[in-house]
Amino acid sequence: MINESFNATDEIALVRAALDGNKNAFGEIVERYRKMVARTVKGMLGDSVYTEDIGQEVFIKLYNSLSDFRGDSKLSTYIQRIAVNLTLNEIKRRKRFFSMFSQTGNHEMYEFDVPDHETHEKRDARELVEKALQALDSKFRVIVTMRMLQGYSTKETAEILDLPLGTVLSRLSRAQVQLKDILKKL
């Protein structure tokens, strides 16, 4: 548990304090960015019971590579890159796993981890979005997650995914077409 809150508003100051071994400073970073990481990981993998492990791994990797953060980009961008890379690795791992056991291949393991307080309407809405996202190709899913769940602009998405702006624009447009097709069937 985090016993005291850390008041630094400046990201660099927070990072420096965390690097100096201040547990509360790193706790503050986790608190600030956990929803953002959850949107990426759960958006791309589905709201599975395993996504929390990936989320924890994101912050552990962040802690281990914090000394490499020079402040050239925003801390959120840096964290987002780690989250996207780890999630894409997990998608690949799952694909390999299922291809070993299934000839049809394209199954992904996800169970809905539904909070108790959620209303039926909201639950149904989340299920609809998750089904649609899971049905998308993974290269489109990551773009759609960045845009639809995180609200990033095309330029920000390109920066996070380290892709040319043109590629992001073309994938967004193709993803929109694929998403329309998927939503027609749901």
């Binding site: 548990m1 929803k35 990481v37 949107r39 709201d47 996504t51 929390e52 309407e121 809405a125 769940l149």
Partner: peptide, 10 residues
């Protein structure tokens, strides 16, 4: 309701 978070105590 399309929002995501990890469980309490994350």
């Amino acid at each position: 309701g399309i929002s995501y978070d990890f469980s309490e105590g994350f």
